[in-house]
C-alpha cells in the first residue's frame, strides 16, 4: 500500500486540511440534524444555542415509529407510500429504459424519438402540472399512488434511456453478433448476454432513479392530499406546517426518511464497484 511517489510534507498538510474542511461542510448539517432529533425542545430554543444536548431524548423516534399514534401513522404511511411509488416508478423506468436504449443503440430506432424523449426533461415541471392535473382528475386517479407512479416513471424514463444507451453503446457489438450467429434471438441475447454485462449500469440507474423519485416534492405536493398517496417529502413539510413547530420532530423525520436512500446507496455502491472491476469485456 506504499505509494512510490513521496509527497512533500507541506503539500500533505494542505491536502488533509482541505479534506477535513470539505468533510466538515458535508457532514456538519447531517450531524446537526441528528443532534436536533435527540435534543429536548428546551435545548433547541435556548439562546445561545445548546449545541450538545443536556440530555438525550429518544421519545420522538418512539412516537414516529408507533403506528397507533397520529404522527406515527402519518409518518409511516408516507414512508410506505414513498417506498411503493419510488420502487414501482424505478422498475417501470428501468424495464422501458433498457428495452428502448437497446432499440436506439442497436436497432437503428429513430434518434428523433430519442431527442423527443430527452426534450421532455428539459421543460420545467410546472409546465406539466396543469394538463396532468386535469387529466388525472378526468381519470379519477388524483390523490392515488398510481398518478404519482405515472408521473415519476415518465420523468425517469428519458433519463434511464440516456444512461442505458451510453452503456450499451460502448459494448462491443461482436459479442451480440456472436450470440446471434450461435442461434440466439434478440430477447434471448438481451437476457443472457447483454443484461448480465450491463448489470452495474442497471444498478446505477436503479439507484439514481429511486433517489430521484424518493426526493420528488412538487408533483407529490400537488397530486396528493391525504395518507393514501402522500410521500415522505410532503409529509416532512406537513410536520412543519402546524402552529407550534417542534424542530426536533422534523429532524427525526428527516433522519428516518434518509435511512432507505442511504441503505440503497450503500448496497448499490458495493455492487457497482464490483461490477465495474469484474465485467471486463476486453477480448
Amino acid at each position: 500500500m506504499h505509494s512510490t511517489i513521496k509527497r512533500p510534507r507541506h503539500l500533505s498538510c494542505l491536502l488533509y486540511a482541505s479534506l477535513t474542511l470539505l468533510a466538515f461542510f458535508v457532514l456538519a448539517p447531517v450531524l446537526w440534524l441528528l443532534l436536533m432529533s435527540l435534543s429536548s425542545p428546551t435545548d433547541l430554543t435556548k439562546v445561545p444555542l445548546q449545541w450538545i444536548p443536556s440530555q438525550w431524548d429518544f421519545s420522538r423516534y418512539a412516537l414516529l415509529l408507533d403506528w397507533q399514534n397520529g404522527s406515527g401513522k402519518r409518518f409511516l404511511a408516507a414512508m410506505l407510500n414513498s417506498l411503493i411509488i419510488a420502487t414501482s416508478a424505478s422498475f417501470i423506468a428501468l424495464v422501458a429504459g433498457v428495452l428502448a436504449a437497446y432499440a436506439f443503440s442497436r436497432r437503428n430506432a429513430s434518434m428523433l424519438l430519442m431527442f423527443a424523449f430527452l426534450a421532455t426533461i428539459m421543460m420545467p415541471p410546472i409546465t406539466y402540472i396543469l394538463p396532468l392535473y386535469s387529466a388525472f382528475s378526468e381519470l379519477g386517479i388524483l390523490n392515488t399512488k398510481v398518478s404519482l407512479i405515472i408521473c415519476y416513471s415518465a420523468m425517469l424514463i428519458p433519463f434511464a434511456i440516456w444512461l442505458m444507451k451510453t452503456n450499451i453503446d460502448v459494448l462491443p457489438e461482436e459479442i451480440e453478433h456472436a450470440a446471434m450467429i450461435e442461434g440466439a434471438g434478440t430477447i434471448y441475447t438481451l437476457r443472457k448476454v447483454v443484461l448480465p454485462i450491463i448489470l452495474p449500469a442497471i444498478g446505477a440507474t436503479a439507484m439514481l432513479s429511486f433517489l430521484t423519485a424518493w426526493d420528488e416534492f412538487f408533483y407529490a405536493l400537488i397530486f396528493s392530499s391525504d395518507l393514501s398517496a402522500k410521500t415522505i417529502p410532503v409529509a416532512i413539510a406537513d410536520f412543519s406546517a402546524g402552529r407550534v413547530t417542534d424542530f426536533g420532530v422534523i429532524a427525526s423525520v428527516g433522519v428516518l426518511a434518509s435511512v432507505p436512500p442511504v441503505l440503497i446507496a450503500l448496497f448499490f455502491q458495493r455492487f457497482i464497484v464490483s461490477g465495474l472491476v469484474g465485467g471486463s469485456v476486453k477480448g
Binding site: 462491443p172 461482436e174 453478433h177 456472436a178 450470440a179 448480465p196 454485462i197 469485456v281 477480448g283
Partner: peptide, 13 residues
C-alpha cells in the same frame, strides 16, 4: 454457420 471473431467475442459473464 459458426464464426470466430477477431476479438473472440466471448461472453464475459
Amino acid at each position: 454457420i459458426a464464426m470466430v471473431f477477431q476479438s473472440y467475442a466471448l461472453f464475459p459473464n
